[in-house]
């Protein structure tokens, strides 16, 4: 599904290297957790994979379903099945949530050569999936993320994921800013999307989220590279000992 090999990334307008030879292999059906301290490159990894401007790849490669991911525009990556759940979902005043979701879904379908959905077909899908995530009709009527609480924004991200049905989901600190109840709703939404055809990369600072979204693999990211990989027990170990050991090792 996703193959990142020896990836080096720097900021485009600054001489600062963020990712230092990162390697990561994710197969269909797997859930990988990437944990690391602040500044270790977690968000950069998610943004580079999603295609955000402002970064320069100076070495290595990233392949998605066998194709060069870094060569694709952000919308092409999405149409191919990549989805990034933002740490801080963007508020877009004036753009209605439903219209946004419909244009997004139909743009992706069009790019893949599939038939575009009619408004009633689309409405049915959204209503059904919104209900499961406890998202009210009122929220859907508002502009994209505008006036949403932190928890509502994260739920809206998961709703987008549920509607767009990507094959690779990257969740960037989805737990940040959530209380325990909201965390459970979001985690249930994510778990409902787990399937043998779908892979997930869960980026998080804290182990807490991984109690709800149980990963198959855990990787420790430090100073732009993965310094240790293991099973879900590695997350518990990190929770007990902290990141100190890894930051020291990397230094």
């Amino acid at each position: 599904m996703l193959e990142v090999k020896d990836l080096y990334v720097k900021l485009a307008d600054e001489d600062r290297t963020i990712l230092n030879g990162l390697t990561l292999k994710v197969k269909a059906g797997e859930v990988h957790a990437i944990m690391g301290p602040n500044g270790s490159g977690k968000s950069t990894l998610s943004y580079v994979l999603a295609g955000r401007e402002g970064y320069e790849v100076t070495g290595g490669e990233a392949r998605f379903k066998g194709e060069d991911l870094l060569d694709m525009a952000p919308d092409q990556r999405a149409a191919k099945g990549l989805f990034l759940a933002f740490q801080y979902p963007i508020e877009i005043p004036g753009v209605a949530t439903m219209q946004f979701l419909k244009v997004a879904l139909n743009s992706q379908r069009k790019a893949r050569g599939e038939k575009e959905l009619t408004t009633p077909e689309f409405m049915r899908i959204v209503k059904e999936r919104a209900a499961r995530l406890g998202i009210s009709q009122d929220m859907l009527k508002r502009a994209v993320n505008v006036g949403f609480s932190g928890g509502e924004k994260k739920r809206a991200e998961i709703l987008q994921m549920a509607v767009l049905e990507p094959s690779l989901c990257i969740l960037d600190e989805t737990d940040s800013g959530l209380d325990i109840d909201a965390l459970r709703v979001v985690a249930d939404g994510v778990n409902a999307l787990r399937s043998p055809e779908r892979a997930m990369v869960v980026i998080t600072h804290y182990q807490r989220l991984l109690d709800y979204i149980v990963p198959d693999f855990v990787h420790v990211l430090s100073q732009g590279r993965i310094v240790k990989s293991g099973g879900k027990e590695l997350a518990l170990e990190l929770e007990a000992k902290g990141y100190a050991e890894f930051t020291r090792e990397a230094a």
């Binding site: 955000r52 525009a73 919308d75 989805f83 979902p89 946004f100 994209v144």
Partner: peptide
């Protein structure tokens, strides 16, 4: 970027 990341 947000809109494009959703396939638009």
């Amino acid at each position: 970027f947000y809109l494009r990341s959703r396939g638009i």
